[in-house]
Amino acid sequence: LVYTMPIFVTVISHFKLNEKINVYKMLGLFSGLIGLLFILGGGILHVDQNVILGELCVLIAALSWGIANVYSKLKFKHTDMIHMNAWQLLTGAVMLLIFSFILEPSRPIHWSNEAILSLLFNGLFSTALTFVVWFWILNQIEASKASMALMFVPVLGLLFGWLQLHEPVTFSILIGAFMICIGIFMNTYQFKKV
């Protein structure tokens, strides 16, 4: 559900960044959304009252992520990406640390080499470096096109889940992945005007 963010970015960018929604973008967004629904499967139709609040929070997170991307493109075009990301990550780390002391049960931490390497890899490579690259890309191309490329994340998650964790890939998932790829193509390819 969080990867509905490109839909929010495309709509907000239409009004705030003058990135007009054309027929191809609309078809691409629709195809990507249908693909996500195929991947989520029939479970999305069986509404569990206990899950609704969580799903609404995820959709609000997707909307917030979309607003943040458009805001970053508007306000931080000439800002040093490394400094901006350093402050964002530092602020987020401090807030998470505070909340972890409040909300998480206190258990002793075992600092093994694997734990330290995992923390460094996730903090420096998977988060810091990729966010610097993301904001650089966001400043280079249309926000709607950049965000639509993130629809590859669920597809790659399915692929690596299948390869590494031996998770099943159903026909519905294959259709969903195909629809997402079509959506990305429709949103990013420069079609000639007729």
Rank of each mutant, 00 (worst) to 15 (best):
N139W: 02
F160Y: 05
A146G: 15
L150I: 13
N139Q: 13
V155G: 02
L158F: 06
I67L: 09
L117M: 13
H166D: 15
A68E: 03
W134T: 04
S147L: 03
P168K: 10
T130P: 04
A86P: 00
S118V: 00
K77C: 00
G176Q: 10
A143R: 02
M84Y: 13
G157E: 06
G176A: 08
H83N: 14
S100H: 02
P105V: 08
N122D: 06
F185C: 10
D80C: 04
F152M: 14
P168R: 08
F121I: 08
F160L: 12
I116R: 07
I137P: 01
N122M: 15
I109T: 11
I137M: 11
D80F: 00
F171T: 14
G161L: 04
V169H: 03
S112H: 06
F160I: 09
T127P: 09
I182Y: 06
E167M: 06
F171W: 11
E167A: 09
P108L: 11
L119Y: 08
F171E: 14
K145D: 09
A149W: 05
P108H: 09
P108F: 07
E104F: 07
A146E: 06
G157Y: 05
M186N: 05
E167W: 01
K75P: 03
G157C: 08
L119R: 03
T79N: 11
F101L: 07
N69R: 00
L129C: 13
F152I: 15
L138N: 05
M151K: 01
C181M: 15
A115C: 01
L96T: 12
L165Y: 01
L174P: 00
A177R: 04
L138C: 03
I175G: 04
F101R: 01
